[in-house]
Design a protein around this nucleic acid. Structure first.
Lengths: 143, 143
DNA sequence: AGATATTCGTATGCATGCAAACGTTAATTG
DNA sequence: CAATTAACGTTTGCATGCATACGAATATCT
C-alpha cells in the first residue's frame, strides 16, 4: 500500500517523456532527408521570414517561430553566415536590424519544400491517416 | 498555380514544428513545479535507475532513457556531483562502472513523485480527459 | 589462438533552448 | 518634460542532444 503511488508512475506513459522521444525521432527523420546542414529550426525560421510581407526585426521573427531572444540570435547568425538571410539597419529605430531573405535563401526554401511533406509523413508513418490527423489536431490544441 | 505547393505548407500544421512547441511548453511547466534544479531528463534517469533491480552500466541506463552515450555522460555526471547516484568499478568488466542511486537520490524521487502527476496533468490541461488519453496513446504508438 | 567486431566510457564540436544580466534606444507615464 | 518602463540586440552560463573520434577492454568469428 505504501508503494501504491510509485507503482502508478510509469515513465513510458508520461506525456513529457513521450514528447521528448517523439521530438527526437522527428529530428532524426529530418536529418535523414536534408542533405545540407540545414536544421529543422533553421528551416522554420527561414520559411517564416520568407512568408512575411516585408523585412522584420530579429526578435519579432524569433517570436513567430517560438524562440527566445538568445536562441534567435544564434539561429539568425548561422543563417546570415550561410548567406540565406541578410540584415540592414532600421532607419527609424536605432536598436533594430531588419531581416530579409536573400535570393539564395529563397532558392533553398524552394528546393527544400518538397522534402518537408515527406518528412512530416515519415514522422507520422506509425499512425493511420485518421490517427495522424487526430494527433496533429491534438498537438495544435496543446500549443 | 505555380504557388500551389508552397501554399499547402503551413508551418503551424506540421508535426515537427508542433512537437517542438509542445515539448517546450512541457519543459516550462516542469520547471515551474520543480524547485531544486532537477531537470526532466535528470528525473527520468534517476527514476529509471532506482526502479532497476540492481546497479547498471552508464550506457545501459542511457539507452533505457533514450539518450546516446555522449548525452548520458553529462546527465550522469551532474547526478553524481549532486550526490544522487554513485558509481563503482565493475569487478568483472574493467571498462564498466556500475551505477546505483544513493539514499539522497531515492529520497529526492520520493519527494518529487507527487509533483510529477501534476506536471503531466498541467501539460495535458488544454485537452479533455478523453483527448488526453488519445494523445498519450498516439504518442506511444509514435515511439 | 589470432584477427576482427563490438562495447565501454570519454572527449570535442556544434546546435537548440532558457535564465540572467547588460547597454542602448524607444515608449509610456507621471 | 522628466522619470520610469519597456523593447532591442547581445553575451554568458548551463543543460540536452547528436556526430564523430578515440583508447581500452570484451566478444565474436575464423
Amino acid at each position: 500500500m505504501t508503494e501504491s503511488q510509485e507503482q502508478h508512475y510509469v515513465l513510458e506513459e508520461q506525456v513529457g517523456y513521450l514528447l521528448r522521444l517523439a521530438n527526437q525521432r522527428h529530428l532524426s527523420i529530418f536529418a535523414e532527408h536534408i542533405v545540407d546542414g540545414l536544421t529543422s529550426v533553421q528551416f522554420s525560421t527561414l520559411f517564416r521570414l520568407r512568408n512575411e510581407a516585408g523585412p522584420m526585426s530579429q526578435n519579432a521573427l524569433g517570436r513567430l517561430v517560438g524562440m527566445d531572444a538568445a536562441t534567435t540570435k544564434g539561429v539568425v547568425s548561422r543563417l546570415i553566415s550561410r548567406g540565406l538571410i541578410q540584415m540592414e539597419k532600421d532607419p527609424t529605430d536605432k536598436r533594430r536590424y531588419m531581416l530579409s531573405t536573400t535570393q539564395k535563401g529563397r532558392a533553398l526554401i524552394e528546393d527544400t519544400l518538397p522534402r518537408m511533406q515527406q518528412i512530416s509523413e515519415d514522422t507520422l508513418a506509425p499512425l493511420t491517416p485518421h490517427e495522424a490527423k487526430q494527433f496533429v489536431d491534438l498537438l495544435k490544441k496543446l500549443t
